[in-house]
């Protein structure tokens, strides 16, 4: 009797765990498949960039980064991001405030429109500005008569970047603010706080991790955008070349070390992005857990 009891007990445990998970062999196989896939498609490209960049030694790497055209590309990329990200931050906060805190006609259409850049090919995103401001575009003749340069110049690059990256902050904040509701704002108002006070003291602190998250992703895309900027920049070395475009030029000139050196900088930005993003997610989850 004792043995049977023991056996029954073992069976019960086995059955209970089998109810919500797979046998060890299956688990092992699935983890293996997933890891090989990740290794092949994510880790290998990441490693390749660094290996290629330092392929001819650290000295060559530094020399190719100190090239004046490279430095100009870095400056332009930073400038573009410095303009596009704050603009889209303001847009994201305004859009999510209107969408998450109010009920109005055409709200779901507006949400769909905000997602538009994700559906449009980057190439087309750049092209629409060429059609508008280019020499043969609608406003082209007027612009050239007044000596205003947009296409093949910095304003066009900024415009295309703003277009490609405007959904990022809004998309993070809309669901977050919807989930938080309006009770805390109502409480603040009932206690005598004004509109801006309510926003700055109650709403903003509640969404800060979401804002950080959106800004990080927005910045990564702004610094890394290739297709849209490529169409609009004209690839003028030292003037309208962003870092990704500079990578292309160096690569096409068979200056592989140079190309990968610049690429390695962008890769570091990407890795920092991932770290910050994980940090924001972790902070946010922590706050969710305690509340």
């Amino acid at each position: 009797m004792q043995i049977r009891g023991f056996w029954n007990h073992r069976c019960a445990i086995a059955r209970k765990t089998a109810a919500t998970t797979e046998p060890f062999a299956v688990r092992f196989l699935l983890i293996g498949i997933a890891m090989v896939f990740i290794g092949l498609f994510l880790l290998a490209p990441l490693a390749a960039v660094l290996v290629q960049a330092f392929g001819d030694g650290v000295g060559v790497y530094w020399r190719s980064l100190r090239d004046s055209d490279t430095l100009a590309a870095i400056r332009l990329t930073l400038l573009t991001a410095a303009i596009a990200v704050p603009l889209n931050l303001v847009f994201g906060i305004a859009a999510s405030w209107a969408i998450a805190k109010f009920e109005f006609l055409g709200k779901s259409l507006l949400i769909t429109l905000i997602d538009l850049p994700f559906a449009v090919s980057p190439v087309i995103s750049g092209m629409i500005y060429v059609l508008l401001f280019g020499l043969h575009g609608y406003l082209g003749p007027w612009l050239s008569a007044h000596n205003i340069e947009i296409i093949f110049a910095v304003p066009g690059i900024v415009l295309a970047t703003v277009f490609v990256t405007f959904p990022f902050v809004a998309r993070e904040l809309i669901p977050l603010m919807q989930a938080q509701g309006t009770e805390e704002e109502e409480a603040a108002l009932s206690l005598g706080a004004g509109g801006w006070q309510t926003f700055l003291r109650v709403t903003l602190p509640n969404i800060k991790w979401g804002v950080l998250y959106g800004v990080i992703l927005c910045n990564a895309r702004a610094m890394g955008e290739f297709g849209a900027v490529s169409v609009i920049s004209g690839h003028i070395r030292g003037l309208t070349n962003t870092m990704p475009l500079h990578v292309e030029i160096l690569y096409n000139e068979y200056n592989f070390v140079g190309a990968f050196a610049v690429a390695s900088l962008l890769t570091v930005v990407a890795l920092i992005t991932l770290v910050l993003k994980s940090f924001a997610e972790w902070k946010f989850k922590q706050e969710l857990r305690v509340s």
Binding site: E183, E184, E186, A187, L191, V202, P205, N206, S291
Partner: peptide, 21 residues
């Protein structure tokens, strides 16, 4: 009159405490 100037104390069902304060 706006809620902020009515001097009413409102207690919400789900407290609506400011969670970051």
């Amino acid at each position: 009159r706006h809620v902020g100037t009515r001097r009413v104390g409102f207690v919400f069902q789900h407290y609506a405490l400011f969670r970051h304060m």
